[in-house]
Amino acid sequence: MIFEPAQIEISELGCERDDRLLFENLSMTLESGQILRVAGPNGAGKTTLLRTIAGLFEIQEGEIRVNRLPLKECLDQVLYIGHKPQVTRDLTVLDNLKFLTGADEARLKSALGDVGLKGYHDSLVKELSQGQGRRCALARLWCVEAPIWILDEPYTALDVEMVETLDAQITSHVNAGGICLFTTHQPPQQLDYQTLELGHVD
């Protein structure tokens, strides 16, 4: 599928947490087709920035507009995957995804095939390994139609093969007109991305 041209406009964003200034006067515009990696040392505010853009944190200073509308009105266009498992351990893989995505069963099963969880749809999440649980959360990237992806450490607990699959999926997403923001400690080889360095504000 092809997305309408999308745009995220961040202007003069500032954030302070626990009396520490994380970033200030952060302005940038992200357009369809762009991949942005947010980099920086631990505690630099990567997660805070991503969660702010995802609308999970209240904006302390500045403004974020998506397609010229305030962020709050556009949250259904955002797909956010964070540190937490985002799956319920006592439910099956399929039930978890059904609740979060609302997609039909056939689509979900094919997405599970894409992330290498074919045949696991009836397993409870607590029976899966950590990597498999992570794949289950990531499977949403194959069955949700949101133009803006915000991925916090998506590569954690993935094997080489899955990393490649994920890179390919991100590439095809932005080629279709999506936007992707992510953080990671190991820079991915096969992506064409820009980098935003955090942790240099004083």
Partner: peptide
């Protein structure tokens, strides 16, 4: 509590 610590609760914000 469990939805909150699993991170499922924050996904509610993205539901329409």
């Amino acid at each position: 509590q469990s939805d909150f610590s699993d991170g499922v609760l924050e996904q509610w914000l993205f539901l329409d």
